[in-house]
Nucleic acid binder design. Structure first.
Lengths: 217, 217
DNA sequence: TAATTAATTAAACGCCAGTTGCAATAGTTC
DNA sequence: GAACTATTGCAACTGGCGTTTAATTAATTA
């Protein structure tokens, strides 16, 4: 501060200190390192609480390089949200299973998918962003409707499929949040099959069981 | 902007522009207005994404006044988190009801409490803060264990009470999040009694029904 | 009524964020 | 090997943030 310009036109001899500038030898993995670091940071904090500078530091790189590769913080965030495709395949395999047997499969799929870091980090980043960025809820809703809930609703042959799927999804979401984000001890400690055994039948009930009639309407 | 002109050290005659400084006439409700505004902002965004300046602007007040009343942003956040006491009373009334009848009562209590703005805003601020601030999960966990889950666990006469209560709580949390934070249509649209009828029996099952045996161990 | 205290604002400070401009180095192409 | 392009770092700019300080006005007290 205090009168920036008007410094004498000294051509600033670019002192040679710290790591040198310029391209590194060998092939470059820097872009991916940045993306990895960004995934981890966005998955851990909110959008506004994670900083490009921290991401850059973890990738052992200059903050400007992050911008150079990804344009802006928002775009970088977008780049971290791409989901692995095989999850979609698993879901579409799921809806072709026996509907009376689906409950346990859904729970198992959800819980095992979460162990895969390629699923877990972008999803938990999405979840976190939904809670911190107003309006991001739409993005997640879109994703869920298109890739997860929508197919299930379409496959249902029962009454009020949207309500059924919403009830099931809210339970699963609560389960995953409790187990993996909040770390509620009994849920985090339990092994997957135990949870499948407990929760699977309930999901099954929501999807195909008898729901109480709507009061009036 | 641009060039804050290092004007000569004129002692800055405190120009009279905008609203005048100084105490206002009449009795003051300012502190409460600030607190209200803060509640709304913290309930809507993450801790780091809400700014004192925005809170002050909504309360139609100078940012410095916020600090003057509450000391710091953290303390202000703390001040917004006090829960209305009657919720605690309702919970402790709840655990004295018939355990075989508790499921529907719990769901109804949760959903109706959420309609009360004095409950909804601090709770959703807590939820959001848990997702954005690392470490805030402990605070919420503490609160839940002390005021909500703990009593339920203590009142349970079944096996594995922590797992039971955790399963029930995760379901309820997912329900409230879907209904009130994400605005999932079928959950947001349904009236409370319909949800009570659907979810109550499931909660009941988690609390007092037969859980599948633990595999080995 | 004089002194004091409480409520309020304006202005600035220091910090840290995202971003930009520029220079330096390494690989690639002719 | 010269010209070019891709990769990297440094330093600075701009802007918003939480917070501090000082000034101003209204209420209260002595």
């Amino acid at each position: 501060m205090s009168d920036p310009h008007s410094t004498a036109p000294v051509p600033s001899p670019r002192r040679r200190v710290g790591r040198p500038a310029g391209r590194r030898a060998g092939d470059t993995t820097t872009r991916d390192r940045i993306l990895d670091s960004a995934r981890q940071h966005f998955a851990r904090g909110s959008y506004s609480s994670t900083t490009i500078r921290a991401i850059a530091a973890d990738a052992d790189v200059n903050p400007a390089l992050v911008i150079h590769y990804f344009g802006s913080k928002r775009d970088l965030f977008g780049a971290t949200l791409r989901l692995p495709l095989h999850l979609r395949d698993q879901v579409s395999a799921l809806i072709r299973t026996d509907p009376d047997d689906m409950g346990e499969h859904v729970v198992r799929l959800f819980l095992t998918a979460w162990r895969d870091q390629n699923v877990r980090t972008p999803l938990s980043a999405m979840i976190r962003s939904v809670f911190s960025d107003e309006g991001a809820a739409d993005a997640l809703g879109q994703f869920l409707a298109t890739h997860l809930l929508g197919p299930l609703v379409a496959a249902s042959r029962r009454d009020r499929p949207e309500l059924r799927v919403s009830l099931a999804a809210s339970h699963l979401a609560g389960l995953v949040i409790g187990r993996h984000i909040l770390g509620v001890a009994p849920l985090a400690r339990a092994d997957i099959e135990q949870l499948v055994a407990c929760v699977g039948p309930v999901i099954q009930h929501y999807l195909t069981g008898r729901l109480p009639a709507v009061p009036t309407e």
